[in-house]
């Protein structure tokens, strides 16, 4: 078998990952249309890791970490970046081999590189989730996070999902041999209009860095946090029986949207430097409480494995 040729652009790496995981049977989803801190927050991971139904999805998720803004100057740090996320439930026995196949697909020659699985247990205090796994090293660089989910939202994962998270910029910079993220070709370098990562994102990194550190109105953010928290709880307090449609409808996803909102608002408040060390824990605890309630609600839905017979 011939080895795949080296990719030439950021988007080619993404497209190859898409094709690869599609060929392995994953549903290729699109990014979630909300501001999230990581691909894990996408309901296709957080909620779908719960319950007994099988699942296989892969998607790119734009992710925001307001405190990581560096005005586009740091070669490796961004407040907005892309994660590639794969979630398969139950985790297949050959998940490591499937993962290694994806590295080959994006042009990493496994005969020349040193790939290692180094212990790294994953925990998300805001999602009440944890799992065991590794960070995957390629020649000493962390290129992915590999996790077997054990708990999400305080619920045991049964069956267990296998989760793969690729930090796309870092991985692509390595594969393409780029030293500064802004110099990375986004589309093909010989395209009629070649665009670099910096052409697309330098300005937004500047704008959002200023926004995150100085611009955002903290009073409003605090208010919105409270609102999102209250709305999440209010949505979950509805009786499942919907009088309009006559159906049983638990509003797990809309409530979870509010949880995501609260989480992002907290991140912004953190970047604005208005959250003290002690308060931090309390805020994280409040978001976790929401995530747990959403998880409780999701397992009461059909997608979460609920069936009428079980409760009858």
């Amino acid at each position: 078998m011939t080895k795949p040729a080296a990719p030439r652009s950021f988007q080619e790496i993404i497209l190859r990952l898409m094709n690869y995981w599609a060929s392995k049977g994953c549903a290729v989803l699109q990014p979630y249309d909300m501001e999230v801190g990581a691909g894990t927050f996408h309901p296709a991971t957080t909620l779908r890791a719960l319950g007994s139904r099988p699942w296989a999805a892969a998607y790119v998720q734009p992710s925001r970490r307001p405190t990581d803004g560096r005005y586009g100057e740091n070669p490796n740090r961004l407040q907005h970046y892309y994660q590639y996320q794969v979630l398969i439930k139950p985790s297949p026995p050959n998940l490591q081999e499937l993962y290694l196949g994806s590295l080959e697909a994006i042009g990493i020659d496994l005969d020349l590189h040193d790939i290692r699985f180094v212990e790294d247990d994953w925990e998300s205090p805001t999602l009440g989730a944890w799992g065991l796994g590794w960070e995957v090293w390629c020649d000493g660089m962390e290129v992915s996070q590999f996790t077997y989910f054990q708990q999400v939202g305080g619920h045991d994962c049964k069956p267990v999902s296998g989760e793969l998270t690729y930090g796309l910029e870092r991985l692509a910079m390595y594969v393409l041999g780029i030293d500064h993220v802004m110099d990375m070709p986004f589309n093909a370098p010989d395209a009629p209009i070649p665009l670099s990562y910096g052409d697309i994102f330098r300005q937004t990194e500047e704008e959002y860095s200023r926004h995150n550190f100085d611009g955002a109105t903290t009073d409003m953010l605090l208010r919105h946090f409270e609102d999102a928290e209250a709305e999440c709880e209010r949505l979950l307090a509805f009786e499942p029986a919907d009088p309009n449609s006559g159906k049983r409808i638990v509003m797990a996803h809309p409530a979870y949207d509010q949880c995501i909102k609260a989480s992002h608002l907290f991140n912004l408040l953190d970047a604005r430097g208005v959250i003290s060390v002690t308060e931090r824990q309390a805020y994280i605890g409040r978001v976790r409480a929401l995530a747990k309630k959403c998880a409780d609600a999701f397992v009461q839905t059909e997608a979460g494995g609920w069936t009428a017979e079980v409760t009858a």
């Binding site: 070669p75 490796n76 020659d109 005969d111 020349l112 590189h113 040193d114 790939i115 290692r116 390629c138 020649d139 000493g140 660089m141 390595y174």
Partner: peptide, 22 residues
């Protein structure tokens, strides 16, 4: 490293140097 390679580890060492430099 956890292996031998045809290029006697040149690629691996180059990658590690890059990470170290960062």
């Amino acid at each position: 490293a956890n292996r031998e390679t045809a290029d006697h580890g040149a690629t691996i060492l180059k990658g590690n140097l890059k990470v170290l430099s960062a």
